[in-house]
Design a protein around this nucleic acid. Structure first.
Lengths: 111, 111
DNA sequence: TCAACATATGCGTTTTTGCGCATATGAAAA
DNA sequence: TTTTCATATGCGCAAAAACGCATATGTTGA
């Protein structure tokens, strides 16, 4: 039961829900400083929220040089699958500012 | 956004998740004292948790004499629909004790 | 090797949440 | 109309969560 509760708990904070929403909708890895910019939140808070999402097994990380990129943990259960579908139903209109900033950021990424 | 967060928050407590799980799986109205017995939790806590579920619009109540029966709020959004499907994926094995007690209780109900 | 950058974390404080106890409210039964 | 039963809630406390600040860690580039 704790496993399910941890997931709901992880999603019951605005910053964390926004992070998961972004990851769900952009379908890209994204690094901490990008999240900081998109969500306009302190770096130390973003790091801490990511740690909570990681503990709930919603995200994983991969280090690339100075950066740490986060992405959605590959789906591994029906529960998790439905959690993702649930999040997909949250409309963009709830995230106008953030999605706009995010698109600009991703476009500016050097290849 | 708050609306979504309130729902996730409502589900991120063991007692409340169990209540919603029961309501989802038995497909019946159930009154406070029945929940108290099934979950083996204090009456005042059950009442309080129900209040939180009500605030999140996951449940509604109907008064019948001395009793107050609670039931799932009829589905009114895609988000809510998927929340319910998500909860359905939580297996009975997580709720052995409770579902057993509940079945006995429902069977003993006077018609 | 040292400065600059990206990320994580320890510590103390504030806010939120959950709980126990007592009691209030409201309906039904005696 | 008084008692009993079912439910709700006010209050105080304890535990948990979130935050701000400072700083640690780790990597890259000068």
């Amino acid at each position: 039961m704790d496993e399910y509760i941890n997931i709901f708990k992880a999603l019951s904070d605005a910053t964390r829900l926004k992070i998961v929403w972004l990851l769900t909708n952009i379908d890209e890895k994204i690094c901490v400083s990008e999240i900081v910019e998109v969500l306009d939140e302190y770096q130390y808070n973003v790091s801490r929220h990511l740690k909570i999402l990681k503990k709930a097994k919603l995200v994983e990380e991969i280090k690339e040089g100075k950066w740490v990129f986060y992405y959605l943990t590959p789906i591994n259960s029906e529960f998790r699958q439905l959690i993702q579908e649930t999040i997909k139903t949250i409309p963009e209109s709830q995230m106008n500012k953030e999605i706009h900033k995010c698109k600009i950021l991703l476009a500016e990424r050097p290849k």
